[in-house]
């Protein structure tokens, strides 16, 4: 009996001795230089609804381990809810691209609204980052134009840091395509500092 108790205590203490894995956190932010200064809100555009597919809305980075099978990383996590990170990154990149300062909280109904839907955003075991998204412009609740974005990007190095970096780059390309389409379809406002 005493031997058994001693064995359990030994195993428990042994388990406690196993060193835990530390999670890594990744942040979705623009790589552009941010300077201080006054910002003039866009009088023409506003960033509206941003929705993401439910499987993306979780802390861990996603990896497609087999066709149709996705696994969320336990130790490689987004530093904030991925929805907030995507919105912040898109707002920064679109503003930088078009010069239209899309500020949060600017909800004037008279503006043309940019709406975004992220349908797929994950990596693959063979080192590809994938982003499939849709965006559309609406005015007074009426959709005026709609677009689709679908691109993939190879990871520079193995690992989740490269995956997070590739997904950030894909989101930046997505924001650039939105900005280019806005520039061709509408008069861009005067260039201002990035938010």
């Amino acid at each position: 009996m005493k031997r058994s108790i001693a064995l359990v205590l030994a195993l428990t203490l042994g388990a406690c001795a196993t060193p835990p894995l530390e999670p890594n956190y990744y942040l979705l932010r623009s790589d552009a230089t941010i300077t201080s200064g006054a910002l003039e809100p866009s009088r023409e555009f506003a960033l509206g609804q941003i929705s993401i597919a439910p499987y993306i809305d979780q802390p861990g980075l996603l990896l497609e381990t087999a066709p149709g099978e996705v696994r969320a990383a336990r130790y490689h996590l987004w530093a904030e809810p991925v929805r907030d990170g995507i919105e912040t990154l898109l707002r920064q990149e679109i503003s930088r691209r078009t010069g239209e300062n899309l500020l949060p909280g600017n909800r004037d109904p008279g503006r043309t609204t940019i709406n975004v839907r992220i349908d797929q955003m994950h990596g693959t075991l063979d080192g590809q980052a994938l982003l499939v998204a849709y965006w559309w412009l609406s005015s007074s609740g009426v959709m005026t134009s709609a677009h689709r974005f679908a691109e993939s990007l190879p990871l520079d190095t193995p690992g989740y840091a490269a995956l997070a970096s590739a997904e950030k780059a894909l989101l930046a390309r997505f924001a650039a395509s939105i900005g280019d389409a806005m520039a061709t379809g509408a008069e861009p406002a005067a260039a201002t500092d990035n938010p």
């Binding site: 336990r74 063979d126 080192g127 990871l155 193995p158 690992g159 989740y160």
Partner: peptide, 9 residues
């Protein structure tokens, strides 16, 4: 451990 993605080709 989490599965590690390879580098892209």
């Amino acid at each position: 451990a989490d599965p590690i993605p390879e580098a892209g080709k």
